[in-house]
Design a protein around this nucleic acid. Structure first.
Lengths: 358, 358
DNA sequence: GAATTCTTGATGTACGTAAATCAGAAATTT
DNA sequence: AAATTTCTGATTTACGTACATCAAGAATTC
């Protein structure tokens, strides 16, 4: 049996009330007595039963999640994972409210942050847009003492407590390495398709990609499709027409539907290597249909669960172990695809078994 | 506030005792009353507070983990993860005892299983050796009603309740796809290095690898190094001497130390593509030093946590959601390596922050 | 020495569920 | 109708912790 508070009291020769005062840092204990109790705690190796403690406290953690609207598969998958986390009874005593804001709209995110502050939650998670007014709002959040976690897309390290997302520079480097190996020859022509250079994660990926390829391939000017399927499709069709020698395409944003459509329409052999980001129903289908060679992915479920864990820890005043919350960069080929309802943004099944833990 | 048992009682117009009888399937409730209560549960959307329930039950889950001895980095990492799971206070009420048996020794595993049965744990996890006496012992475990999970290496599906490990055929296919892309040319000469064809996971990986490469490359006869560094090193040195044209090496077993040593000693350019399994300090160093191009990995921490979750579920009579417990096949290049104490088998740091959740 | 503060103990209630006991009520059998 | 069995209610204790209250002793100040 694990030692309990009673065992501490017996060991230290004090009453339960005193043990409680020490454990919960309540005033009214002489320094000498406090040390006796702490020695007893260490001696018998007591660890607080958090389940019982939370039960007694009947504590709830009200969290606010701010997510972008739009039909971006990845973001909708993210939202689904948040909703699953809300529904999951094991995710104890967290009460999440979701706020949806227009995509790529810094002002809207800033407003949502201020509204969240007013509601006084125990923590806020936000898919950030890297704009000055968002930074200011984030600083206001921190000033009001509410823990703040950025999700997927970061702000500067000084204006949030934690970033639950991947190292996008490393992701770009990974894409670059794969690209170099996949095209198989030096000085090949490579095209890069981004959503917008205004978002930090896209910029970071591009930097990493360039670094990994430096000197070995010829990079065409970056195409910006604004994550819009139609615009992206036009860009790619045009690219393929004007550069028949393109050996590889790296799509580092979310406009994969347009890319895939263009590749599908293309009548000549497609570029030797096509690498994209985020495993969605579309990229999955493209992988399976050999239109894409590799997909780099960040597991939205992990990110959401990690964000919740970190917010909880911060709310409890426990420092989160950063190393433990690092999000992996997954590489998927058609051969190691997980099942559809495991890791995807959007399940194609009707309701789908909740992908609870991992 | 979430509804409680009291709310059920009020809604159904029965007493708390009756609600308890229904919830815990105790006898002594008329069918009609039981249905009223169940309707009430559904109506108010009651979900049992598992934390409170376990507290009240003061239930503990004694589990036995049977792991192979030896200096195999992956296995030692696995053991470390089990010990971390034991130490973790959040992993509630599981009491794990670890049994170490000689590696590749079916008889020893079988004896350990029988000994475990005698101790009557709430569940057993075992790194299986695919031998007839192990199968028989596994069947005895099942006959005694104890849930059994195979870890990393499987037995037949009929003699265990669950397999906590990767789809090794898919892993082999993935390696094959990468290999084909990395060597970049058809009809290249590829060597395969295995531990032993007697273990199921190695066989499966080879099958998958062959399937992915079928018709495109020339596979040399499989080298069996018995996961022994010295023997493996000799095999590889000999291979490189006799087949200077080898374009790729796939190491599907655990003898990577020998492979790496041989590559290090090699004075001519190494084969274009070297792919290995399991991220350990050795393979990590080799990745970083460009001796290996890619490492396929199964996350030992995930596997251990998944095994525990499944055993717990089985012990509670709840069917585990198989899809949710599927273990990913990770692909690591030097560019997307996680930090050392994140996912590795063995941390090189002194004690290391426990990689608790994920 | 009295008044005040600080420290500690004793005790009780609460959280949501489990589990046991005993007493009735209702339904069934004789 | 009586005896029996089956069902249901009421109540209590427990799990491990949190938290509040009251009283009493110890230490401090005036």
């Amino acid at each position: 049996m694990r030692p309990t508070v009673h065992d501490i009291a017996a060991e230290a020769g004090v009453s339960l009330a005193t043990v409680d005062r020490v454990l919960n840092r309540r005033p009214g204990v002489k320094a000498a007595t406090r040390m006796r109790v702490e020695a007893a705690i260490a001696a018998i190796g007591f660890v607080r039963d958090m389940a019982a403690a939370n039960l007694a406290k009947s504590r709830v953690y009200p969290f606010t999640f701010i997510l972008p609207a739009g039909d971006n598969s990845f973001m909708r998958g993210l939202e689904r994972h948040v909703r699953e986390a809300m529904a999951r009874p094991s995710a104890d005593r967290v009460a999440i409210s979701i706020v949806i804001v227009p995509p790529f709209d810094g002002a809207a995110v800033a407003r949502a942050l201020d509204a969240a502050i007013a509601a006084e939650p125990a923590g806020i998670a936000v898919v950030a847009v890297d704009a000055p007014d968002v930074v200011e709002a984030a600083l206001r959040v921190q000033a009001s003492g509410i823990p703040l976690v950025t999700l997927v897309s970061d702000l500067g390290p000084s204006c949030r407590d934690h970033f639950a997302g991947i190292d996008n520079h490393a992701a770009g480097r990974t894409a670059g390495s794969l690209m170099r190996r996949f095209v198989g020859q030096d000085s090949a022509t490579i095209a890069v398709l981004a959503g917008s250079m205004l978002v930090r994660d896209h910029r970071d990926r591009l930097d990493g990609f360039r670094a990994a390829l430096s000197g070995t391939c010829r990079l065409l000017p970056v195409l910006e499709g604004q994550d819009d399927p139609a615009a992206t499709e036009r860009l790619i069709v045009d690219l393929l027409a004007r550069h028949p020698d393109v050996a590889g395409i790296y799509s580092l944003g979310a406009g994969n539907r347009g890319l895939i459509a263009a590749l599908q329409r293309h009548d000549r052999p497609r570029p030797r290597a096509v690498i994209a980001h985020e495993l969605t129903p579309h990229t999955r289908a493209a992988l399976e249909g050999d239109l894409i060679d590799a997909v780099l992915n960040q597991d939205a479920g992990h990110e959401v669960r990690s964000a919740i864990r970190v917010l909880k820890a911060k709310a409890d005043g426990i420092p989160a172990v950063e190393a433990q919350e690092r999000i992996r960069i997954d590489i998927f080929l058609k051969d190691n695809l997980p099942f559809a309802d495991d890791a995807d943004g959007l399940s194609l099944r009707p309701s789908g078994a909740a992908s609870g833990a991992n």
